[in-house]
Design a protein around this nucleic acid. Structure first.
Lengths: 214, 214
DNA sequence: ACGTTACATTGTACATGTACGGACACGACT
DNA sequence: AGTCGTGTCCGTACATGTACAATGTAACGT
């Protein structure tokens, strides 16, 4: 019964990890984002500070776990949105994404604006989609637009470009709240509409691995 | 002679601050970005660690000073670029900006991707242009394009949108080097060309302070 | 049953950013 | 001249993240 023992161990470990994440979540809610320290977290669950490191590589890892939870709810919120017209459905992804980023700047920052020294242990790219389930929805809805003839070109390239602009918009609004963007929501809508209109007018080629001529 | 004495003091202080910045710069060159610590820096200039805080509010402030230096050289590099056609001149701003960001990720990060808890003491918005001289050039060249009839609309709005996309591109390339953007330079050029082409096709209204209808 | 091995837990220790308050020098004002 | 205020410099102290290694425990092989 070696396997079953191993699995029980893993399950135990996963449970304790979840408990730590829950405690961290409560701590953040109660004392704010900078109130989350390893020592306080350990005390909450009755462990020694260093024990936390059996479950998380470092503090970033804890923040990542918190942010992943938040992003899952984002994905659900996007999916839950009504999608009569494929183009409107695509716009909804961007506006919901932006609303989430502006409403959860800490989580957005830890996932999209911090150095990626260590990727969470899986194979690079899929892991990013894992930690960002919204990306999957985005690609799906882009494909729907292409299928409906509203957009033309490579879906992944289009989605990547949309992500690029959405991220630029959100991160600037977060980082420079005093810059005169005007109303944040209006600026988000402007960029969103601009991108959809512009993409509609072009045939977007796939991303190229090699340096390009012009 | 109160004034002159005050000024001498200020000059002295500015000199010492510059000396500290220079020492910090050398430290970073020698030991890398995480080798820059307050204690090492203080030892370099023969001060006690806490003395550094007479010249900088905190460590971020030091990093900011370093980054500002770097951005000034960026502005010079952009200005130095030949600008026969106004559209080409505009594209040159974006590609140089991107090249700088990809080549100096640490500086780019401290200026554009860190929380702005304390703005450097001046009045919000102009200070941002101060720390980012490239923005001034960008607006100027957008105005040139508008004047030449190549672009239509509000120059500041156009410049802001270009900045948004440029920043999104650079920060994603920096943060997710493993995401399959393809060749980074090619992706930068793609976004740059896409934006110029798209902006050419529309009349861009000014940024609005109030929430918008559609 | 017994030694071995792997792993969870922890105690200690260190480097770091920085808050706090003291010591001191020097110009300003009476 | 003497007192005071202001700003510089620094010694001490604390919270924090985390490296290192010791200790204990539980499963495993023999």
């Amino acid at each position: 019964m070696t396997l079953s023992v191993q699995k029980r161990r893993e399950r135990q470990k996963a449970e304790l990890r979840s408990e730590l994440v829950a405690a961290a979540h409560k701590l953040v809610q109660e004392e704010g984002y900078e109130g989350l320290t390893i020592r306080k977290l350990a005390k909450r669950v009755g462990y020694a500070p260093m024990s936390v490191y059996s479950y998380f590589a470092d503090k970033q890892d804890i923040l990542f776990a918190l942010a992943e939870d938040a992003f899952e709810t984002l994905a659900r919120r996007i999916e839950a949105h009504p999608a009569d017209d494929p183009v409107e459905a695509l716009k909804a992804v961007m506006t919901e994404y932006a609303a989430f980023g502006l409403g959860n700047p800490n989580e957005y920052r830890t996932v999209f604006m911090t150095e990626k020294t260590r990727l969470p242990e899986g194979r690079s790219y899929e892991d990013m989609e894992e930690g960002n389930p919204a990306m999957k929805v985005l690609i799906k809805r882009v494909e729907a637009c292409v299928a409906a003839g509203k957009l033309k070109g490579d879906p992944r390239a289009i989605a990547t470009m949309l992500w690029t602009v959405g991220h630029g918009t959100i991160s600037l609004l977060i980082t420079f709240p005093f810059y005169p963007f005007g109303d944040p929501e209006a600026y988000v809508k402007r960029m969103c509409n601009f991108m959809v209109a512009s993409l509609s007018a072009q045939d977007i080629p796939p991303l190229t691995e090699t340096p390009v001529d012009c």
